[in-house]
Design a protein around this nucleic acid. Structure first.
Lengths: 348, 348
DNA sequence: CCCATCGATGAGCAATTGATCACCGCAGCT
DNA sequence: AGCTGCGGTGATCAATTGCTCATCGATGGG
């Protein structure tokens, strides 16, 4: 393995590394023992590590994909990435990812935490697996209005209530529809104190829990009525690949506008950016393009995703050679020889 | 592997360990990321290491026996142990061990070092492989007189001279025979300034380089004439198993006296104990019992030995259940239910 | 209920390691 | 010959980690 090392040097590196890592000797002890200076020992240890003389392997539990998570984190400048094990069945896959997300939440929540909760099948699956081992005095607040057209467990108020119940915290519901017919009605509802208070609380949350939607006709935005099938077709023709909280982006993460946004009662994408930890939960198989677009927008901090989607997203990013892509800043959407830009580090 | 860990705990340990060892994150960074305290992260890393979640393996060069060396060091409280690769041929084996010893010396010698050199075939093989990569202003001094009955390369003066030549240092010879016929002659010679000066220098050395002799009739002590065959038979019947500088010990490391000692012109065993680093070089196949006895005497700090002998010595120590044995302090030598004592740590 | 014990915890200090910097030696060039 | 650039080195300071200790909470026993 370390072909570039002379035998003597290799032997010395191995001895010193063994003393340090196996025998738990300090660098000073080793220095004394080998007649070297302490900084010299430090350098030799560095060299031993770089040369592969020291092989550190983490025995992870089955199903834990630490290297894949690393790659996601690095590629998309994420605070964290959690990859759940693959399942052949969509429902089992959703549950596995929800379990991972629940575990993440259990670790991250502290007394006083505020979590803004979005709609979606993936976020909706989470409460069932959420069992904190202590009472957490936190707040779950709806980030979006509700819709009667989708299952109750998909609605933010129900998700918030269930999460609050299991943690011993409290739920703050948004008593408003997810969308209205005219922008004027939306503006009026948003100024109503009950709605405004809840949205303010959500906008000031520590953590946002969101799903990433696709642009197929079965997505939550269409099923809930926020978007018509025609409007969705139009978004697709404009290059939209996915959404978070109803805000669509293209493959490079640039926003794709649509009149439906003026009808939504939800956190805006600007609100979302201001939240310290935006957690996206994804388990559906048709989602890699949507996930890639949303990750490139830079709006997500933590991605909880199934392994097949994780691999597909990374493969997509590698194929188009743009890596994390370019943060949307307006443009023609032509996609012609756009150089790989940098994601704005909004956590500074 | 970590069966006693709950799944969640195992996963957390693996994540944290991966961040620390693979991602090079600091404990503080990990603490912030996982919402824990820094000391808690440190404890989790400790647990991860103890639980085997962290697997650190040193890629040693072929022929390097770091674990065996560890075991020798631990079993016999040695400053160091170096185990050379096995060879089927006695001469090749001696050369391999001498090469190891030469390398050890090269590492350890500094300007101003004084090395006291004993007789023996194993020490005599060393100069041939001794090639320091820089000039070392050191001194090699004979620890024992010489004998015309053995090969010149086995005599301390020749060894010292050869080592000095290769390092650019200087040799101080002992112009006296290894033994005389009467104790009175020995006392007279030891008081002669040329002899006294050399022995004083040798007694004040930083490093002593010695062989370990057996009790067979072909050993250097008999060949050189220091001991007759009868005297050797008597020593054997008294339980002697090996010697260093003509001082015999039994299997437990206790001294076995003999009148020949009053006739020797060499460093005493007390002198040897006062030298900071006494290095014993051993390559002969009949030696495990001798090595075990001498190691148990506590007089040796560093053992350079071939692999078969190393294994045999450790097996012997395990078989008689006494480990490093008991340091000789006088006694009947009955060996009846003597508890495993401790080697006095003379390096304090 | 109270009390004692034990283990976990974070604050804070000590020890160790990482990294910067001035200096030195060496090799190559003029 | 002198000069320059480069890499290695140890002294030293900064950063990180190890470890001690006081405190707290949980548990079990009386």
């Amino acid at each position: 393995m370390p072909d570039d090392l002379r035998q003597e040097e290799y032997e010395l590196l191995a001895r010193i590394a063994h003393r340090y890592y196996v025998d738990d000797s300090t660098q000073e002890e080793i220095a004394r023992e080998f007649g070297l200076s302490r900084p010299k020992v430090q350098r030799l240890l560095d060299r031993a590590r770089r040369a592969g003389v020291v092989d550190i392997h983490i025995q992870a539990p089955p199903g834990l994909n630490l290297d894949l998570e690393d790659e996601l984190r690095r590629t998309f400048k994420l605070t964290d990435a959690i990859v759940g094990p693959p399942y052949p069945d969509a429902q089992a896959q959703r549950e596995a990812v929800a379990r991972c997300a629940a575990r993440y939440l259990e670790r991250r929540l502290a007394d006083g935490s505020v979590v803004a909760v979005s709609h979606g099948r993936d976020t909706g699956a989470l409460p069932r697996f959420f069992h904190p081992d202590r009472r957490i005095d936190c707040t779950f607040v709806s980030a979006m209005g509700g819709s009667p057209n989708v299952d109750a467990p998909t609605n933010p108020n129900e998700i918030s209530r269930a999460l609050a119940e299991r943690s011993g915290g409290r739920a703050v519901s948004l008593y408003a529809p997810a969308y209205v017919e005219r922008a004027e009605i939306r503006d009026e509802l948003r100024q109503q104190e009950t709605v405004a208070h809840t949205l303010r609380l959500a906008a000031g949350a520590d953590i946002a829990l969101v799903g990433i939607g696709g642009t197929d006709d079965d997505c939550t935005m269409v099923r809930s009525g926020c978007l018509s099938v025609d409007e969705m077709a139009r978004l697709r023709s404009q290059g939209a690949v996915g959404d978070v909280l109803g805000n669509y982006v293209d493959m490079l993460g640039r926003p794709v506008s649509s009149p439906h946004q003026e009808r939504l009662i939800a956190l805006t994408v600007e609100d979302l950016r201001r939240i310290r930890t935006a957690v996206a939960v994804v388990s559906e198989v048709e989602k890699p393009r949507a996930v890639l677009g949303v990750l490139r927008s830079g709006v997500v901090d933590v991605l909880v995703v199934d392994e097949p989607n994780a691999r597909a997203v990374l493969a997509l990013a590698r194929e188009d050679g743009l890596g994390e892509g370019r943060r949307g800043s307006g443009g023609s959407g032509s996609g012609a020889a756009v150089p790989a830009g940098e994601v704005v580090d909004r956590r500074v």
